[in-house]
Design a protein around this nucleic acid. Structure first.
Length: 282
DNA sequence: AGCTCTTCCTGAAAGC
DNA sequence: TGCTTTCAGGAAGAGC
């Protein structure tokens, strides 16, 4: 599923080919994941792509309107669980579940495919519109003190906080579990119970995991591919994610799975000791 | 504030 | 073999 490293990989690929291109035509299939399909069909044709960038798990396509009104619209795309953005020639066969086609002025096409349609697409007036405003720190841009300030003293479970996009933007289930394993922190620990040293270790782990995942072009589990259709390789480096019952590479204990924050959470019971459970009153 | 449950959707995998 | 059920999960919303 596309999280920060996967979106970053797609963005880097698109940024090589899209800036300067003009969108000449928009064709849509199913539109229930698009906020205002008519707005896309009306506003996109004729506009020029300026930049493609990542904001959390969102792809932001900054646009320049043909009528130079000063309006700088942006197309926001969230890949959800199974979203793919691919560039290809116009005659390339259409994969099932391809729901949006953006014809470009060089004859090529940008296509959006999303079997489960958990993704989303919308046009905002400025690249900072609606959903982006409520997002928290970018885990790679954040300094250690910003990161610590965001988590210190919070009563929620650390895993829930790492997944919360209003706290940190971009982490998902895979990189949360991998980071917690690396930092030797159990997903159920309350952030407020963590020592300063734990949080520092977590900061380092998050940065290291995300950077390595970007270097390896993301994790290809489920449907993830980059904008050229290539798979990533970080799934080969997963230490806990989807490794229930397999041996921890550090201590040989069997990896376990529990539900935390409504998500499957994989951890090593030896390396990541569980918090003390408060006794339930009878 | 923070937890759990539900909804959206499809395909893969498990169960019978 | 082939059908049915379950599960996965990003995000938002409800209810506690």
């Amino acid at each position: 599923m596309p999280e920060l490293p996967e979106v970053e990989t797609v963005v880097r690929g698109l940024q090589k080919v899209l800036p300067g291109r003009r969108i000449v035509e928009v064709r849509l299939g199913k539109t229930d994941f698009i906020e205002d399909p008519a707005a896309l069909e009306k506003q996109l044709p004729g506009s020029r792509i300026v930049t493609v960038r990542r904001y959390g798990k969102f792809l932001v396509v900054d646009l320049e309107s043909p009528d130079a009104t000063g309006e700088k619209p942006a197309l926001l795309i969230h890949l959800g669980m199974t979203g793919q953005l691919i560039t290809c020639g116009p005659d390339t066969g259409v994969a099932p579940h391809t729901h949006a086609f953006f014809a470009l002025d060089d004859g090529r096409e940008l296509r959006y495919r999303d079997p489960r349609r958990f993704g989303s697409m919308q046009i905002v007036a400025q690249g900072n519109g609606s959903p982006l405003g409520s997002l928290g720190l970018d885990p790679l841009d954040a300094t250690k003190s910003e990161f610590l300030a965001q988590l210190r003293g919070r009563r929620a479970r650390i895993k829930a906080l790492l997944l919360d996009q209003s706290v940190l933007r971009g982490m998902g289930n895979i990189y949360t579990d991998e980071s917690l394993w690396r930092a030797r922190i159990h997903p159920k620990r309350l952030a407020a119970s963590l020592k300063e040293a734990d949080l520092r270790r977590l900061y380092g782990a998050v940065q290291a995991i995300l950077k390595e995942a970007i270097r390896l072009r993301g994790s290809s589990i489920s449907d993830y591919v980059d904008c050229a259709g290539e798979r990533g390789e970080f799934q080969l480096r997963h230490r806990v994610y989807q490794r229930e019952g397999k041996k921890c590479v550090r201590c040989k204990s069997a990896i376990r799975r529990v539900i935390v924050a409504g998500r499957s959470s994989y951890f090593c019971p030896q390396c990541q000791p569980a918090p003390r459970v408060r006794a339930r009153k009878a």
